[in-house]
Simulated assay, not measured.
Amino acid sequence: MKIAFSPCPNDTFVFHAWVHGLIQSAPKLDVTYADIDITNKLATQPNNLDVLKISYAAIPWVLSEYTLLPCGGALGRGCGPLVLTKDHSADPTILSGRRVAVPSERSTAYLLFRLWAAQNVPGGVGEIVVMPFHEIMPAVRDGKLDAGLVIHEARFTYENYQLNLLQDLGNWWEKDTNLPIPLGAIIAHRSLDIAKITNWIRSSVEYAWSNPKASQEYILKHAQEMSIDVAQAHINLYVNEFTRNLGDEGYEAVFSLLGRAANEGLVPAFDLNTLRI
């Protein structure tokens, strides 16, 4: 079975057991490791991938071929994307007409940023520059860009780049909706046995929780020189009960995000009820 997910610690933690043949009856995995911007694009193009990790924001473009799975993804509280600048101002209007780096045009991070900016940045921001998320903070630090939208472990390391937090979009979303924030989703091709894939992923998550040190070597191999402490903080933040099962609250959060985005014309409109299997 062919799968694509990021080399980030939460994904390698979740899929370690399945990748290493530790889930009974699960097929062997052929893994493509790729940043979320790449997997978002792969899901909309002809490919031979069976399962992918993509942004929730990209789901409206892939529903003809793929089904959202109720497990394995990243959704929670206190884990939202951050808007960073070199400026010490807390006034979002400083972004008016400025150049801002984002990790993907179809990422949940960018979708949240657009919803937030529509309310808080008069006239809108200027140029949007898409780049791999690990390149964003150095670019802002070096003055190549005015601001950066960052995800993942940047939450724990941005001060090392002498950058300042302008807005935590997760906090904004949670205050605005009283819901967790949907970040990364797991999708599977509609031609497959969705129930079996869901069970294999859920078993992999549960193995990871029961054997938290078993995956450390695998995680650090793919974690781009990240320390074990930062990798563990990353896992603690993004792997939670929603990773095991979206449940009613998780689906409500997804419906809220994509429903609002569709109403604003930021994603194609679709029947939200088709997301729930």
Rank of each mutant, 00 (worst) to 15 (best):
R202Q: 11
A101F: 06
L192I: 00
G73W: 09
A17Q: 09
L82C: 07
I23Y: 01
S107P: 01
C8N: 09
V239G: 06
R98A: 13
L68F: 03
A117Y: 02
A214T: 02
K175M: 09
M226P: 00
A214Y: 05
R276C: 03
E127N: 09
V51Y: 01
H222P: 00
G80Y: 06
S215Y: 08
P122K: 14
S96T: 15
D87W: 06
L163F: 11
A118T: 11
R141A: 14
E206L: 15
G78C: 11
L42S: 08
L272H: 11
N245R: 08
V100L: 09
M226R: 12
M226S: 14
N273A: 13
V100G: 04
G184S: 12
Y158L: 04
I197M: 03
S104V: 08
K86M: 14
G72S: 12
I23M: 06
A253N: 07
A57V: 06
D176S: 15
K221P: 00
P7W: 07
D168E: 12
E159A: 10
N120K: 11
I151R: 01
T274H: 02
L165R: 12
I36P: 02
S25Y: 06
E206G: 00
R276F: 01
D11Q: 14
P182R: 10
G78V: 05
T108P: 12
T243L: 00
H20D: 09
G124M: 08
P268L: 09
T93L: 08
L115P: 12
N171S: 07
L165M: 14
D11V: 05
P180D: 07
T274M: 10
I197Q: 04
G250N: 06
T243Y: 02
Q167W: 08
D11L: 04
R106E: 05
I181P: 01
K28G: 01
D271C: 05
A185N: 10
P27R: 02
S215R: 03
H16V: 04
D37F: 14
A58V: 04
H88R: 13
